[in-house]
C-alpha cells in the first residue's frame, strides 16, 4: 500500500500526459487540438507539484506562521506559476492561428487543411 502511494501521483501525471497526447492524435478539429494541448500541459503541473510536496508541510506563506515551520518546496511552485501563465499566452497565440486558418481555408479539420502540408 505504501509503495503504491509513493508512486501513484507521478503515474497520474504520466496518465494525463498520455490523455492529452491521445486527444491531439485523434483530434478532428483544431480547437479540440488546442484544448488537448492545454490538458497535456497540465501534466507538468501535476508532476512538479507532486515532486515538491512534503507530508505535513505547510503552504509557503509565512504571514501567520513562525519562520521555522516545515513547508513544501516553494521553488517548484514558482515554476508552476510561470508555467500556467505561459500556457495561457501560448493558447492565445495558437487560437489566433486557428482563427486565421479558419478564415483562409474555411475548414478546421487537420486532415483537410491542405495548406498545412509541406
Amino acid at each position: 500500500m505504501n509503495s503504491v502511494i509513493h508512486t501513484f501521483p507521478y503515474l497520474v501525471a504520466g496518465w494525463v500526459f498520455l490523455c492529452g497526447l491521445y486527444g491531439i492524435v485523434t483530434s478532428r478539429h483544431l480547437v479540440h487540438m488546442v484544448v488537448s494541448m492545454a490538458v497535456l500541459q497540465t501534466s507538468t503541473y501535476i508532476l512538479l507539484l507532486n515532486i515538491g510536496f512534503r507530508q505535513s508541510g505547510a503552504a509557503p506563506v509565512f504571514a501567520d506562521l513562525p519562520p521555522s515551520t516545515r513547508i513544501v518546496d516553494p521553488i517548484v511552485q514558482a515554476l508552476m506559476l510561470t508555467d500556467i501563465v505561459v500556457e495561457a499566452t501560448v493558447v492565445a497565440l495558437v487560437l489566433a492561428f486557428v482563427v486565421k486558418a479558419h478564415e483562409n481555408a474555411g475548414t478546421l479539420s487537420p486532415d483537410d487543411l491542405r495548406m498545412m502540408r509541406g
Partner: peptide, 14 residues
Amino acid sequence: FQAPDVALSQIVIG
C-alpha cells in the same frame, strides 16, 4: 497539496 499561489492562478487562468 499546499500550493495556494498556484491554485489562485489556476482558478483565474485555467
